[in-house]
Simulated assay, not measured.
Amino acid sequence: MKKIGVCVVGLGFVGGQAHAPSVNKIKNGNLVAVCDMNDKLATKYSTKYGCKKYLSVKEALKDPDIDAAVIAVPNPFHYQVAMEFIKAGKHILLEMPLGVDLKQTDKIISAAKKAKVTLMPGLNFKFAPIYKEIKRMIKKDKVLGKGPVAIHFREYISANLLAAQWPPNSWAWDKKKSGGPLFTLSVWSIDLFRWLLNSEIKQLHAVAENHKLPKYKGTHGYMGYAVAEFTNGTIVSLQYSGGVSADQTISRTELIGENTNILTAIDTHTIKLNTDDVYETVYKVDAPGTRMWGHYQEVEHFVDCLAKGKTPSVTPEDGRIATEAGIQIAKMYRQLK
């Protein structure tokens, strides 16, 4: 079986530290090249993985060894870069959100369909071992009886971590260009709960605020709260923050069953089950490196589907639904003057 030649485009935090090492290890893929307008980053990763480097998409598209691209450029460039690869007949795994609005998103989906190339949204949470185990426990072990009646999700990212990833002048803080950080970071959890519940959003309401952080020279400390009702009746509350102290960074999901049991996922490593009979049972999840949040498994699935002529389980419509929900949440985000 011919290996799929892959180019990782955009070598920031996700592209450089998650996607590039993942592509480099998967069985049916070959990391042919990396691409970034930053020569220092491109040189760093091309040297590390022994692959070609390109400083522009135009250069990369001249390479006949590239069959597909994993695109992890900043939000404002998703549309432009995705369309260039699609027009060139290349398959793409496109980081979320697909576009900064639904107009861009629909154009990308339509172009991929017309060109008959695979478009897989980068929705990695459903590949993360901790959430796959949570779903197994719900479906197979029936630990929540008929299922969860309510879910409480909290994603707090410390201000110092975000400042390191997105400096004050970064695209991420400009809502007009990128949709803002709340939009950017909410899409994965929305998709996660659609997948966990095998259900669609019936209604969604949100409130949010945004304040500058002088301590970090102007990055933003957003706070967002949303409540969604799914078509199966489950109520999901979502809490997002990028304005907490370093020791408060956490991803926590509490699922309350119709049998009164509570199943909790903490970050990527711990699952707790609370019942009337046993106060608390703790399970540890071992998921090292890029497998932790599902990036390796996501890229592996994308490349395997290309190699075997299959359709990925993550569809363009999944990406559109998550993008639309993220936009709805971000509507209530008070942009600073």
Rank of each mutant, 00 (worst) to 15 (best):
M1K: 10
K2P: 15
C7T: 04
V8Y: 01
G10Q: 00
G10C: 08
G10S: 08
A18H: 07
P21M: 09
N24W: 10
N30F: 13
N38H: 03
N38A: 08
T47R: 12
K48N: 09
G50I: 14
C51K: 00
K52N: 09
K58P: 09
E59H: 04
D63K: 02
D67Y: 13
A69F: 11
V70E: 05
P74N: 06
N75W: 01
H78L: 00
Q80L: 09
K87S: 12
L93P: 05
L93D: 01
E95A: 07
L102E: 13
K103V: 13
T105A: 07
A115N: 06
P129W: 01
Y131T: 04
K132C: 10
K139F: 14
V149E: 12
F153R: 14
L162G: 01
P168M: 04
K176V: 06
S178W: 06
S178G: 13
D191F: 11
R194A: 14
L196K: 07
L204Q: 08
Y216I: 01
Y216D: 05
G218R: 01
G218I: 01
T219L: 07
H220Q: 04
Y222F: 12
M223F: 12
F230P: 01
F230N: 06
T231S: 07
G233T: 01
G242N: 00
S245D: 14
I250C: 11
E254L: 15
N259M: 14
N259D: 10
I262G: 15
A265P: 12
D276Y: 14
D276G: 13
V278P: 06
E280Q: 11
V282G: 01
V282K: 02
Y283R: 03
A287G: 04
P288R: 01
R291V: 13
W293Q: 10
H301I: 00
H301E: 11
V303K: 02
D304V: 10
D304W: 06
C305P: 13
T311E: 12
T315Q: 09
G319Q: 03
E324N: 01
A325K: 02
Q335D: 04
Q335C: 07
